[in-house]
């Protein structure tokens, strides 16, 4: 059950999408999101979806894996769809019942909203599916480097992120173990009302927090033993380099975002 969580999962591979510099991919995702929010109507949405489909094809990530990533946000998607459906007002209602009414504009807004969220999540998942967490944080650190001038602790932020990503599977495993141990003593996580269920989480959460703190402590000591003292003067084993394909990808990405922006302005 817990093992189904796909957050930040990486599928190793050797496609163009995997080989691109992580910084390029981060910039491309930002451009993609900008384009997605400039999309106005069927034509532009179709174009964004087509570009995503091409990227998915290049990365050889299975569509099933991308769809599975949507599962946790299904409730949010449904909720926004329903809200848009009922709250967008137009001129002539298609259907009315007491205070509820549906306008054709509402249906369109709901459809576009669902499309927008779905495409947004699929696009960002494609990034984490094709980029290992280490590369991803490396890329972020290097992109945020200029912020060091205004005293943003860029290296520390990146380090925190890679540690957090690293410990997600460990903590999931730990949760599974503690759950089994408490079940062996008759704990019941599956039945009862909301309050009873919340209370049943205590025997799980207390040991989990304690072990998380213990791990953090041990990791801190281990890092200090290896003379970790922040990012200053630290060199990297793998230095990031832009290749020709990165420049090409960025030019294409910029053209794509600009194109969608213009088409969106035209109301397509």
């Amino acid at each position: 059950m817990l093992k189904d969580i796909t957050l930040g999962q990486y599928f190793p591979g050797d496609t163009l999408a995997h080989r691109l510099d992580p910084r390029t991919k981060l910039i491309l995702v930002v451009l993609y999101i900008v384009a997605l929010f400039c999309a106005k109507y069927f034509w532009t949405y179709a174009l964004v979806a087509l570009v995503l489909a091409v990227c998915v094809r290049i990365s050889r990530v299975r569509l099933k894996a991308l769809v599975r990533g949507l599962k946790p946000v299904l409730i949010i998607i449904t909720f926004t769809a329903v809200l848009n459906l009922f709250y967008t007002k137009g001129e002539e209602p298609l259907w009315q019942w007491h205070f509820l009414s549906i306008y054709p504009e509402g249906i369109l807004a709901a459809v576009f909203m669902v499309l927008r969220i779905t495409l947004l999540i699929m696009g960002t998942f494609l990034l984490t599916y094709t980029t290992s967490p280490i590369h991803l944080t490396d890329g972020m650190e290097s992109l945020m480097n200029p912020l060091k001038k205004i005293h943003v602790p860029v290296h520390e932020l990146a380090m925190m992120m890679s540690i957090a990503l690293r410990f997600i599977p460990t903590l999931i495993e730990e949760t599974d173990k503690i759950m089994s141990a408490q079940k062996a003593r008759g704990a019941d996580f599956e039945s009862g009302n909301l309050l009873q269920r919340a209370k049943a989480m205590i025997p799980l959460l207390v040991p989990l927090f304690i072990s998380a703190f213990r791990r953090a402590d041990e990791l801190a000591v281990a890092m200090e033993c290896r003379c970790y003292h922040g990012g200053e003067g630290r060199t990297k084993l793998h230095v990031l380099h832009y290749a020709a394909r990165d420049y090409a990808a960025m030019v294409l990405g910029l053209a794509f975002a600009a194109g969608i922006f213009v088409l969106g302005r035209m109301g397509l």
Partner: peptide, 14 residues
């Protein structure tokens, strides 16, 4: 589970 008691490895973490 009440009749077959199971003590896991490193049970102090629970």
């Amino acid at each position: 589970r009440f009749q077959v008691g199971l003590v896991f490895q490193y049970p102090e973490y629970q």
